[in-house]
Write a protein that binds this DNA or RNA. Structure first.
Lengths: 341, 341
DNA sequence: CCACTCTCTGAGAGCGCTCCCAGGGAGTGG
DNA sequence: CCACTCCCTGGGAGCGCTCTCAGAGAGTGG
């Protein structure tokens, strides 16, 4: 039990004195004890325990130039990005992996261009060892701002073209997943397969369109609907699709939320799923997938795992000599078959 | 424009040399420039600019014993606490206020009792100046763990009895808001007013029940339904209520999510709102309130403001001599009348 | 038993900053 | 014009830690 001494916190000096060793030896023990003989290690450890010693982080950082903290930059050009379950899972993965590496998560919430300078200063100020950011709309200036801080970083999601290509990213195989989804519909014998895509300025949406086109090389443009990843937009896009091409018998929707909206429209119009129209989503978001009627067939991606991977890449970047840049990672997706297709 | 010098970051020493002043003077300027004559301030500022100087945080912390970071402790005994819009708003308020105080937000994500020791070590290690935590179920051991770290902190939500009473908290006037809601129903001429409450181990739910009872001193116990703050539980509680007391003509529901569920049940049973049964919620959560049919009359609370207040209290705690403990704050609520009551 | 190697330990020099304190310069009254 | 006060400024110590480097001690071979 640590002594409940009031007053200033004990220093390494105090530990060393109590253990009867030098500060250097005490330091070695505290940092793993390599190269110190067992009896001394024992003594120092006991002193640490008795004094309730906790290393002073600032002092350590001052000399090691490492502070064991990583910034997670959350930009909020739109509403709801934080309450987004997708986002939550990713941050959770990051948090867990960071904990495993004994690193802290510093949250940088960007509310608008006015915050950019503040963020850049913070990043450049050496408060954190590295940064994690998420790919945004292609017209966002934030990536550039971050890059200028010249601090190790990793993106979540493939960044828009034009972003510094030396920054590694973690993304799921959007294109491959989309292909698998569409192939599944084809395998079901569907002939008029539509796609409801996400915003054109997001790489994930673009990649999914590409996957759709990879399989359906010359699909009728009328079979291409567009949404913005919200449920409402999915419902609307589905309605328009039905108007344009009443003979549609399969839809690959770029995310589960929009798929849920599409399902609603279908139900409202009396179209049977999957009998008349088979529907496949993307994301395998538990909160959505479990509630749709019928249960949604969708493309699964390991979101938490992607968060963890971002941290792993960053750690490699941090540990490395600086010369080698870890390659970006594309994580696999898998089709989860449920009732809707 | 800062010079794009590669290599180590410039130190205060370098700035001082360039400005032709001593390190002490440069330091004074960087920290506000009080007591330094204008021309020198000017010179130092220019040197800072030219060198692209950014203060070394660790060095500063080492001597000032202040590190400009505040921990936000997020416990996740249940699912979804992070994707909860309530929570999001509160964290946003915290983030904004922290930014205003030039302080950083360090996110501590607690996933279970296994993390407690880690959290305690971190908090005790002087990595942060203070901590912000949210009141949890009464049987949670976390508050105790945090308290042992003996670090300035503020709770969000009135903590359960038994928690250290010297820790200030910020909560909305749950009881008063509930009273207002029920009085509104009374004013509408409703005679059989029910209440659907939240989990019995959460102070907010308890306070709201008290508010209900304050107005309806001898309400029939059969008019008291119980949920767990989820939409589903609200729907179920409403159904049971309808079965027990078909003559119910008003319901005060302890949160909007449950109210939304209750509204659904009412609609399914063909009960008209507000004609047959008037419904009042609590929270005024935009995402829920805007979607219900009819639009939900509810008790508004300034969630973001509460987050900001938490930070303000903490800052006062930090700045104070340590003797005076700022009082907890109860923020006002207000009834927002919409169509449901 | 001595010389040499190898392992372990401790002294000391900073890391970059703040802040105390002493000293210098300007300003003012006699 | 001198003495005294007041405001600025700079020197220097030290925050708590890590890490280099040299030296002490143990072990080994000749």
């Amino acid at each position: 039990m640590p002594e409940q001494t009031t007053g200033p916190r004990p220093t390494l000096e105090a530990v060393a004195a109590r253990a009867g060793v030098s500060r250097a030896t005490a330091s070695r023990v505290v940092n793993g004890g390599a190269g110190v003989r067992a009896p001394l290690v024992e003594k120092v450890l006991r002193a640490v325990e008795e004094l309730g010693y906790v290393p002073n982080h600032a002092a350590r950082t001052l000399v090691t130039r490492r502070n064991g903290a990583v910034a997670v930059i959350i930009a909020e050009p739109e509403f709801r990005i934080f309450s987004d379950p997708f986002f939550e899972q990713q941050v959770r993965g990051i948090s867990r992996e960071l904990t495993a590496h004994d690193a802290q998560l510093v949250l940088l919430w960007v509310e608008g261009p006015g915050d950019h300078e503040r963020i850049a200063r913070y990043l450049g100020g050496g408060h954190v060892d590295g940064a994690l950011a998420f790919s945004l709309h292609s017209d966002d200036a934030l990536p550039t701002v971050i890059e200028r801080a010249r601090i190790p970083m990793v993106f979540g999601g493939r960044p828009a073209p034009g972003t510094d290509p030396t920054v590694p990213f973690v993304d799921c195989d959007n294109r491959g997943g989309a292909r698998e989804a569409v192939r599944h519909l084809v395998g079901l014998g569907r002939r008029n397969i539509a796609h409801i895509s996400g915003p054109a300025d997001q790489t994930s949406a673009i990649d999914r369109i590409h996957g759709y086109r990879d399989v359906l090389l010359d699909a009728d443009p009328a079979l291409l609907g567009r949404g913005d990843f919200t449920e409402e937009s999915g419902a609307r896009a589905m309605a328009e699709l039905l108007d344009r091409r009443p003979d549609v018998d399969g839809v690959f929707v770029a995310n589960d939320l929009m798929a849920s909206g599409a399902l609603r429209t279908l139900r409202e119009r009396g179209v049977r799923v999957p009998e008349d129209v088979a529907v496949v989503g993307f994301d395998d978001m538990a909160s959505v997938v479990e509630r749709t009627v019928p249960a949604l067939t969708t493309v699964h991606q390991d979101i938490e795992g992607m968060g963890r991977l971002m941290v792993k890449l960053l750690m490699r970047l941090l540990d490395g000599t600086g010369a080698e840049i870890p390659a970006s990672v594309i994580t696999p997706t898998s089709l989860i078959r449920r009732a809707s297709a």
